[in-house]
């Protein structure tokens, strides 16, 4: 554990808490892509199956349970409790276009051809693109509430901090994982446009609005 990874994990937890609080306090999930939230739930379910097979540390196990529980809660709030506020019409990204290529890629490029390892690889690939329905929703409506922008910034920062973690681990521990690094770079790049808008608009107190 190094400072970059810990900061990344904190940023990830922070993002999830912001999202849950936003939905709970406003009693609404307007502006949030349910499809991205379903993809994240699939990511955690397929990655954290190793809760039952491999013990790394109490910290890791607690975080895994936390991510599973909070993503389940988010999907529940969006599709059951506050279903009426869910923005179906704008959330029209076809997730099979992400699920199928990630599954095929995981079957072909993985560290080891076992069920657990292919599922882990699938979850890494899927996580890298799982935000696309959310970014698509923002681009369709042309704007995002500030709280949604803060959520996206914290979520994007998490993988960017992990990139620093991987650089650190390569230099200090000679440890690297090409699949995680490649997917992490893709994931971070997808947020770049958003980061730019966040820094130039939201941090200056303006609403995130895309040029018409």
């Amino acid at each position: 554990m190094n400072i970059f990874r810990f900061a990344g994990d904190l940023s990830h937890v922070f993002a999830i808490i912001i999202l849950l609080l936003k939905i709970w306090k406003t009693r609404s999930c307007a502006g949030i892509s349910g499809k991205s939230q379903i993809l994240f739930a699939v990511v955690y379910l397929t990655r954290y199956l190793d809760l039952f097979t491999t013990y790394v540390s109490l910290y890791n196990s607690v975080m895994k349970v936390l991510f599973l529980a909070t993503s389940g809660a988010t999907v529940y709030l969006m599709y059951v409790k506050f279903k009426a506020t869910y923005d179906h019409n704008h959330d029209s990204f076809r997730i099979e276009f992400l699920l199928v290529p990630c599954a095929l890629l995981a079957l072909v490029i993985n560290h080891e051809f076992t069920v657990m390892e292919v599922l882990w690889t699938f979850s890494i690939y899927l996580e890298s693109v799982a935000i696309l329905p959310q970014l698509f929703l923002v681009s369709r409506t042309g704007e995002a509430e500030s709280i949604t922008s803060h959520y996206l910034f914290a979520l994007g920062s998490y993988r960017a901090l992990y990139l620093l973690n991987w650089v650190y681990r390569y230099m200090v521990e000679s440890h690297y994982d090409l699949i995680a690094i490649f997917a992490g770079v893709v994931q971070t790049v997808l947020y770049c446009d958003f980061f730019y808008l966040y820094i130039t608009k939201v941090l200056k107190g303006k609403k995130l609005q895309l040029p018409a």
Partner: peptide, 10 residues
Amino acid sequence: DKDQSEHDEL
């Protein structure tokens, strides 16, 4: 070098 399929990150 660690085994690449040992995942100790989240």
